[in-house]
Design a protein around this nucleic acid. Structure first.
Lengths: 200, 200
DNA sequence: GTCTATAGCCAGATAGAC
DNA sequence: GTCTATCTGGCTATAGAC
């Protein structure tokens, strides 16, 4: 796992630390320790903290967006997309549980900065999905609802538990194991609830 | 609005800055500027940054929890609680939009620290609500569902849009005005969707 | 490419006059 | 209680040997 590539090794360590502490709270020394290399190496490879952070953020963000667009832009029906979204996306987040929190946190602390990454193929584009919802409503295939509200519901139900995991575990008194089981169950639970709410 | 009380004046300024930048990113100078007082005053009143932060966090947290418990512990039916929760809680967050993000962010960055506040009447306690759901399921009043999943749905649908607001505005191309309208609509929209999903 | 040593800066904290 | 001036420590960043 080590030394395949010092640069990727640093990135992996930086992801962990930036995710735990955020940009401002992260320490270059802690990243170096995590990567088991010398602190000076960080500067050798990434010049400074800001650039290292941007590399980490870029990598995180560019994983998330295409994943979303793949589903939004496919040829499936709205029902199928909802099912696929929950199944695939929750799976994806389970494998990268830090991503949503990290992105939302840094986006809140530094909204301007993030817009830099919102270009080319990196921007999540829900428009195809929103237009499709309009269309299926007109065709009488699903109940009337503001497309953005439907999308909000979809995102809220699937992403929120991960963002608020620490709080939820505390408040609802849930173990890591139970949390995983609940998330596993949600893959289908949420889909059925949403579909049920718009089924004609 | 100023000088009523220097201590509260500082707290108000600190809330703003800590919310924008988080504990690590916040600067004592920025808080002093925001409060239009001298930096030394911060130390005079709150001794150090950590204690000032704890005072801010405590104030934020102790607003949120009772608000929740009031609804969870009332004598209403599950349906009524769901309606009240969405109406009251979204209203409350609209007036304090920084609260959920702030709490979730600092809780993620420093899980240990937060447990200090999770005592006395300050801990959100969803148990009465969870037990009530079990009971109404047994009585055949609502469909079978894991109580925790229902609570997760409720919290997700109402809180997530606020936590992810910056991201959502960017991705869904929504103005502040439109965001408010969507949230206003959600007060009833969400309730009906959730109730619909568990109605026998 | 990797390391040690250190420069330089910035932010939290305090001393002390008023 | 409020201010100015200043100390101190910690952290980013670089110089330079190997």
């Amino acid at each position: 796992m080590q030394d395949l590539n010092t640069e990727q090794n640093i990135l992996n360590a930086a992801i962990l630390v930036f995710q735990r502490k955020g940009m401002a709270g992260a320490r270059m020394q802690e990243i170096a320790d995590e990567a088991k290399i010398n602190k000076a190496m960080l500067h050798y490879y990434f010049r400074n903290k800001q650039l290292l952070f941007e590399a980490v953020f870029m990598q995180a963000f560019s994983q998330l967006a295409p994943q979303l667009n793949l589903i939004f832009a496919s040829n499936d029906t709205v029902f199928e997309k909802i099912r696929k979204f929950n199944s695939n996306y929750i799976d994806f987040i389970l494998k990268n549980p830090y991503l949503p929190t990290f992105i939302i946190q840094e986006l809140n602390n530094n909204p301007e900065f993030v817009k830099k990454f919102m270009v080319h193929g990196n921007k999540p584009d829900p428009n195809p999905f929103l237009l499709q919802i309009e269309k299926e409503i007109t065709l009488g295939k699903i109940k009337k609802i503001k497309p953005k509200q439907l999308l909000l519901n979809l995102l809220s139900l699937s992403v929120f538990p991960f963002v608020a995991k620490t709080m939820l575990k505390l408040v609802m008194d849930v173990s890591d194991q139970e949390f995983l089981e609940l998330m596993e169950e949600r893959k289908t639970l949420i889909s059925e609830q949403i579909i049920n709410s718009i089924k004609v």
